[in-house]
Amino acid sequence: MDASWLYMYMPIAGVDIFWPGLVLIGYSVGVIGGFFGMGGAWMVTPGLNILGFPMAFAIGTDIAHIAGKSMISTIRHSKFGNVDYKLGFIMVIGTMIGIECGAQLVMWLERLGQIGPVVRWVYVVFLLLIAVMVFSDYAKARQKKKAGEVAGEKGVEGFTWYKTLHKINIPPMMHFKTSGIYCSAWLPISVSFTTGVLAGFLGIGGGLLRMPALIYFIGTPTHVAVGTDLFEVMISGLYGAFTYTLKGRIELVAVFVMLTGAAIGAQIGTVATKYAKGYGIRLAFGAAVLCCMISIILKQFKYELPAAVLILSTIGIICIYIMIIMFKGAANELREKKAREAMATKA
C-alpha cells in the first residue's frame, strides 16, 4: 500500500513528516491547553522531535506556534486586562535577552552534535517536575476536601521570599504601581531572563515557571501575574519566532498546520472547562505528562515507533475524553435552553 500521501516533505529540515500527526499535535495542544489553562507547549517540542523533526527545528517550530496561539488567546481576552505594563516592559528586556541566549545555546549544541540528547534529558527533568506539581496539587485538593474546606483558586500562600528579595538595593530602584511593589529593576530582569533562557532553549512559553516566579519572587498579586505573564508569553513567542527563523530553524507551514488545529482545539478545551467537575481530570493530565516523558526516553534510546505511538495515542485519548465532556455538556445546555424557551412561550 502506498502511504506516501500521508507524508509531507519539509524543505528546510529536509525530512518527510507524517502530517496527520502534526494536525493531531496542534489540535491536542489546543484542547489540552485550553482545558487545563496551561500552555501545553511542553508536549509540542518532544512531539515534533518524535515525529521526525530535527531537535532545533522542533524547538523553533514550537516557539513560533506559541506566538500564534498567544495571539489567539490575547484576542479572546480582547485586551490584556490586568497587565502591569511597566513591569511587563522591564521584563521584556530580560525575556528577549534570555530567549536569544537559549536559542544561541541550542545552535551551539547543534554544532557540537549534542542537541538531541541534551534537550531530551532537560525535557525529562522538566516534565517530571510538572508531573510532581500536578500530583501534589491533586493531593492537596483531596486533603482540603476531606477537611471540608472550599478549594481556593490560589495555590499556597505564605511564601514571602519576595520580601527578602525586595531588600536587595541595587539601583535603579523602581516602583511598580499596578502591582504595588517597590524593588530593584534587576529583580524582574533576572527573573525574566531565567525564564527566557528556558523558553528559548525548550521552545515553551515559560508561563509555567514565570507565574510562580512573579508571585513568589517578585510579589505581584495573582491577577496581575496572569495578565503580565500572558504579555510576556506573547513577546517571547514573537521574538522566538523571529530569531529562530533568522537561524533557519522553523518550518513555517508546519506552524500554520498546527495553529489551525490549535485554534479549533482551544475552543473545545475552554468550553469543556465549563462542564467538567472534580479534580479527577487532573490525574489524567499528570498521566499525560508522564507518558510524554516516557516517550522522550524511548526516543532517546531509538525506539522511534513505540515513542510516536505512545505520545500520539496519549494525547489522542485525552483529547477524546475532553471532547466527550464538552459535547455532552453542550448538548445538555442546549436542550435545557430549548426547554426553557418552550416553557416561556407556553406561559
Binding site: 500564534g68 495571539m71 484576542i75 514573537l238 519566532a241 523571529f242 506552524v255
Partner: peptide, 16 residues
C-alpha cells in the same frame, strides 16, 4: 524572519 512573525500574528488573529 520578518515574514514569519507577521504571518504568524496575522493567522493567529484571523483564526481567533
Amino acid at each position: 524572519a520578518v515574514w514569519a512573525v507577521v504571518l504568524t500574528v496575522a493567522i493567529g488573529c484571523f483564526l481567533g
